[in-house]
């Protein structure tokens, strides 16, 4: 029972990081029908940008205000990079065949990954310990303050995003654009602005996810975007790519699943089982757990 509760806590923590990153994949896919392969590397870049903000701007002091500032500054920088990425790598290919944009995304992924390596070097960097190492023992389970912060902040961000999409005018514009871009234009929706907005939101959430990963695991490498990006991408597909609550659900499920496999089987098997889970879900539900199935009448 203790193992179960401990892995539940660990799984929710990892899951919320996956979910934050998965939202970036799913939102871009929703509107542009494009897998933004550079998103994982953007997440990795945000860890390094966060490190730079800490050392260069804050002079290595970590107050509460400082930590909050790291999150905001990093998210703002990554949002700018995300919008630029879309302008440079995707917008010129908007009307090109789908495959051209995919190749461009793969290229952007390599450019960002190598960019990180050239700027910060190929070796692992250790992210500073910005959150005090406080642990709580709750009925045989050890929960760290970091875990609680990750879980609570992620949930707040996800609820906020959900309300934004469902309840606001801009959210309606995003939903309409993801359903039918031409029909959205006829309603007076500026689809180009919607796409920029998607990249701002997706990159900012990815930046928060990247900082959480850095704070939680501490060791950051230039190529870590591949691994976390892949996991988040799988989470998005499990939930039904293009579906926002789906990405949240997929991330959480994937985190819990991999934590339980690590706890009960072996951590070396976690990846293998994760892919088996993905295959299993896709066999039963090819469009993911919450993927749309409504057939449109013609």
């Amino acid at each position: 029972m203790d193992t179960f509760l401990q892995q539940l806590a660990n799984g929710l923590t990892i899951g919320s990081m996956f979910a934050l990153v998965a939202l970036g994949y799913t939102m871009v896919y929703g509107v542009m029908k494009l897998i933004n392969f550079a998103h994982g590397d953007m997440v990795a870049a945000s860890a390094f940008v966060g490190l730079m903000v800490y050392t260069q701007i804050l002079g290595q002091t970590a107050s509460l205000v400082g930590v909050v500032a790291i999150f905001f500054i990093t998210a703002a920088i990554m949002a700018c990079i995300g919008v630029t990425l879309e302008r440079v790598a995707y917008r010129p290919l908007r009307t090109a065949p789908r495959l051209s944009a995919v190749v461009s995304a793969l290229g952007a992924s390599l450019v960002i990954q190598n960019g990180i390596m050239l700027i910060w070097g190929p070796r692992m960097r250790i992210f500073p310990e910005l959150v005090p190492q406080v642990y709580w023992h709750v009925g045989g389970v050890i929960i760290s303050m970091m875990q609680v912060i990750i879980l609570v902040l992620s949930l707040i961000l996800m609820v906020a995003l959900y309300l934004f999409i469902e309840k606001t005018r801009m959210g309606a514009a995003i939903r309409a654009s993801s359903l039918d871009q031409d029909a959205a234009r006829l309603m007076g929706i500026n689809v180009d602005s919607v796409i920029s907005l998607i990249f701002i939101i997706g990159s900012s959430l990815g930046a928060v996810g990247g900082l959480f990963i850095a704070l939680y695991y501490r060791g950051i490498t230039f190529d870590m975007g591949w691994q976390y990006g892949l996991y988040a991408f799988i989470a998005a597909i499990i939930g039904g790519i293009g579906n926002i609550p789906g990405a949240m659900l997929g991330g959480m499920l994937l985190g819990l699943f991999s934590a339980f496999i690590s706890g009960y089987v072996s951590s070396t098997w976690a990846d293998a089982f994760t892919f088996m889970l993905l295959i299993g879900i896709l066999i039963v539900r090819p469009t993911g757990l919450l993927g749309e199935r409504v057939a449109e009448k013609v």
Binding site: L179, D180, R185, G188
Partner: peptide, 23 residues
Amino acid sequence: PAHKIVKLGISHSPEGRRVFGVL
């Protein structure tokens, strides 16, 4: 651009209806 047309007072009900099916 396309999104500015409706603001001028021209509204277009497109061929094939193009309603937002899941809304």
